[in-house]
Design a binder for these strands. Structure first.
Lengths: 226, 226
DNA sequence: AGTCGATGGATTGTTGACAATATAATTCCT
DNA sequence: AGGAATTATATTGTCAACAATCCATCGACT
C-alpha cells in the first residue's frame, strides 16, 4: 500500500490502489468473477468507495463490468499482449525523443546512476528476475516522466505499464535477457545524454521491438501459455 | 444522449455521457469549479452515480479532483494541446499501418464512401466547419477501430479524441483547411486500400503533423488564444 | 496596517438500507 | 425425458441521511 503522499487519502483511492496491485500481482486472476461484497470484506471497505474504484479501473481497462451481472478481471490474449508492445514501441519512442530534448542534466545523471545500480544488482544476484523487472520499470518510468509530456506520461504510467506488469508477474519471465536489456538501456541513456533525440527514439523502438519478439518466440515455442 | 445500444444503461453511464459531452461541448468551461449538488440538479441525478462518473472522468483526465475541495474541469494549455497532437501522430500512424493490414474489404469500401460523402457536404455547405469537424472525427474513428488493436482503439477513442474535440468546439476552428484535409484523407484511404501499411503510416503522420503546425501558427499569430 | 490564527458554514466523503435486475433452480408441458 | 417458461434468490444499482474535511470570513495580535 502506497504512503499518504497525497495530503488526504480517501477510501476510494485506497480501494483503487488495493485492487490495482491485487490485479497486477495476480491475487485476482484474469477472468475471475468477483463479487462486490466479497471485495469489501477482503479489503475492509464499504461499497460506495469500492464502486467508485471499480469505475476507475474499468475506465483503465483492467476489468470489465456488465450491469447487474458482476465484474471480472480482464483477460488479455497473447495476441493482445503483443499488440500492447506495438503501442509501447511508438509511444515510448516518442517519450525517449522528447526526454532527450527536455530532461534536465540532473535527471540524466540520475538515469545513468540508476543503470549503474541495476548493473550491480544483476551481477550480485544473477538471474534474480524480480529485481530486473522492477529495474526495467524504473528506467522506463523515468523516461516517461522526463518527456515533459503530461498526457503521454499519464497514458504510459497509468494505462499501459500496469497491464504489462500484470503479465510480467503472471509469466514471471521479466525479459529473460538481463544483460542484453541493460546494454540497450545504456545506449538509450547515452543518446539522451548527448541530446540526440532521433537516436534515442530509434534505440527505444528497437529495444521494445526486441522484447516483443522475445515474448513472441517464447509463445510459439509453447514455453509461454496465456 | 446516446441510445441504449448497450442492453442496460445505468445511471452512472448516463451521468458519464452527460458530463463528457458537456465538457466536450464547452457547457462546462475548463477551469470551472463545479459542485456535486449543482450537477445533480442540472442532470437530474443523484450523488452516488454522479460520483462514480466523476471518478471515471478523472481517470480519463477530463477533470481533476482534490479531496474535500471539489472538482473542476481540466484546463489544458496551448503547449499541452500541441503535445496531444504529437501523441496522435505516433499512435494514429500505427493505427493506419495496422488498419491497412487488417481492415476488411467492406470496411475499406465504407471508408472511401465516407470520404465521398464528406466531399459532397463540403461542396454543398462551403466552410461549414461543424460538419467538417465531425467528418474528420468519423474518418479517424474508422481507422482506429479498423486497426483491430483493442487497446490502441480504446486509448484513441476513449482518451485522446475527447480532449481534441473539446478544443475543437472551443476554438471552433476544426482545421480551417477542409479541402486540403480531405485530399490527405483520400491518400491515406488509398494507401489502406492498396494494403500499403508503411505508406499509410507515413501519410497519417504527415497529416496530423500538418494539422499540428496549422494550430501552432495560429497560436503564434495570436488568432488563437487558449 | 498587515499577517496569523480561530471559528462557522458549506461541501465532500461515507455509510447503511431499499429497489431493480440477471442468474439459477424449479416446475410444467410436449 | 428433454426443453421452455417461471419463480426465487442473490447480487448489483440507487437513494437519502450522517460524519469528516476544507474554505472563507472574522477577529486578534505584531
Amino acid at each position: 500500500m502506497p504512503e499518504a503522499a497525497t495530503q488526504t487519502y480517501t477510501r476510494a483511492d485506497e480501494a483503487f490502489d488495493c485492487l490495482q496491485t491485487a490485479i497486477v500481482k495476480g491475487d485476482l486472476a484474469p477472468g475471475e468473477k468477483i463479487g462486490e461484497v466479497e471485495l469489501c470484506s477482503r479489503f475492509n471497505l464499504t461499497r460506495g468507495p469500492l464502486r467508485e474504484a471499480l469505475g476507475r479501473l474499468e475506465s483503465r481497462g483492467l476489468l470489465v463490468r456488465r450491469p447487474h451481472a458482476g465484474v471480472k478481471v480482464v483477460s488479455v490474449s497473447a495476441d493482445e499482449l503483443l499488440e500492447l508492445y506495438r503501442i509501447r514501441e511508438t509511444m515510448e519512442g516518442l517519450a525517449a525523443r522528447q526526454a532527450a530534448e527536455r530532461m534536465t542534466d540532473e535527471e540524466v545523471a540520475d538515469l545513468q546512476a540508476t543503470l549503474d545500480n541495476h548493473e550491480k544488482m544483476i551481477e550480485q544476484a544473477q538471474g534474480q528476475a524480480y529485481y530486473q523487472a522492477e529495474g526495467d520499470y524504473d528506467f522506463h518510468h523515468r523516461i516517461a516522466t522526463g518527456s515533459r509530456n503530461t498526457k503521454l506520461a499519464q497514458m504510459l504510467l497509468g494505462d499501459l505499464y500496469y497491464m504489462v506488469r500484470m503479465y510480467r508477474y503472471r509469466l514471471s519471465t521479466s525479459s529473460g535477457r538481463p544483460h542484453m536489456a541493460l546494454e540497450e538501456h545504456r545506449r538509450i541513456a547515452d543518446a539522451i545524454a548527448q541530446r540526440d533525440g532521433e537516436l534515442a527514439e530509434f534505440l527505444m523502438k528497437r529495444h521494445i521491438n526486441a522484447a516483443r519478439r522475445n515474448i513472441e518466440t517464447k509463445i510459439h515455442n509453447g514455453s509461454l501459455t496465456i
